[in-house]
């Protein structure tokens, strides 16, 4: 699948923003009357920038408001509805916190629920597609939720350290769980080739005659389908990128997080570096998520 930069930027930035919102809403972030709302503003801007980026890949972005109408059937519509509801509720939560000096517990919990639902909806847009076997499984959902959670833990940890607070005991466990979920996605879906969904024989229905091979394509230059669904550029570098992601995007932030808990002097620079590395890793992982995914339409073109 073609890795559209706007979709990668959207899912990575909004994932980090939503993860931070969820933890802040649950009271697991900084609790100060200034540090809390400021962290909230950071998450709000990140998620907002991501949501704006998501409209850049549309053919007719001026009609994007229509995407709020089909929440009964469409995960993309649900993502839109939930994201906008989350932005409104979370804005009220942060503004109330800033004005009154203390956060509203119900609004915080509602924000956390909506944030989890928003990331879940994003993941389901991909996990629902039977046409892409690598995506159409629960590991996709776990990976999206896991990366958002990991980013949230690092971002709130950094905010607390900067505000002179100490994250509570066990605050690193969600980071471990989130990183494990992100790691599991590629390990467990790598073997889900196109053949697990369909074959050239079932795509053409000609299996009874023998093995099917394309002799001549229907057009001489690549069309929309081939550019969008049969993206093969960079696949040969996929293994190296995956190693970069695991080392710099998963293990390094985890190590830096533990280090920051042990050595107080290193806490702020360590967590800042961890956040930067997490973002770097998340971009690689999301690029691979698209570039490595194969769509069954490739079977008609004799390519994957």
């Amino acid at each position: 699948m073609h890795p559209a930069p706007s979709v990668i930027v959207f899912t990575v930035l909004s994932g980090l923003g939503f993860g931070t919102m969820a933890l802040l809403g649950l009271g697991l972030g900084p609790s100060g009357a200034v540090a809390g709302p400021l962290t909230g503003l950071f998450a709000f801007v990140l998620a907002g920038a991501g949501l704006l980026a998501s409209t850049l890949h549309l053919g007719n972005p001026q009609r994007a408001w229509r995407a709020f109408s089909q929440w009964r059937t469409s995960w993309l519509s649900r993502e839109g509805v939930v994201s906008v509801a989350l932005m409104a509720v979370f804005f009220a939560y942060v503004a109330g916190w800033f004005l009154t000096g203390s956060p509203s517990r119900p609004l915080g919990i509602l924000s956390a629920l909506l944030a989890a639902l928003a990331v879940f909806s994003t993941a389901m847009i991909y996990a629902q597609l039977k046409t892409v076997p690598r995506w159409s499984n629960p590991f996709t959902v776990a990976m999206f939720l896991g990366l958002a959670l990991a980013g949230g833990v690092i971002a709130t940890g950094l905010a607390m350290t900067l505000a002179g607070e100490t994250p509570g005991p066990g605050a690193g466990l969600p980071l471990l769980a989130g990183s494990a979920a992100a790691y599991a996605y590629r390990r467990r879906t790598g073997a889900l080739s196109l053949a697990t969904a369909a074959t050239p024989e079932s795509a053409t229905g000609l299996g009874a005659l023998g093995r099917v091979r394309q002799v001549e394509p229907p057009h001489s230059a690549p069309n929309y389908l081939m550019k969008e669904m049969i993206f093969i550029v960079g696949r040969r570098r996929a293994e190296k990128l995956a190693v970069l992601f695991v080392i710099f995007g998963l293990f390094a932030p985890l190590f830096l997080y533990i280090l920051s808990r042990e050595a107080e002097a290193l806490a702020a620079p360590g967590l800042a570096l961890a956040l930067a590395l997490h973002l770097f890793g998340a971009f690689i992982s999301r690029w691979l998520f698209f570039a490595e995914a194969e769509h069954v339409v490739g079977l008609y073109y004799g390519r994957r």
Binding site: G59, P61, A64, R66, I125, M229
Partner: peptide, 25 residues
Amino acid sequence: ACIGCGLCAWACPYGAREMDRAAGV
């Protein structure tokens, strides 16, 4: 009403849908 997001083309196993790059639908 089409915003040209392309998700329907992703959902189709048969490659039956193609984006019109000029009209964005």
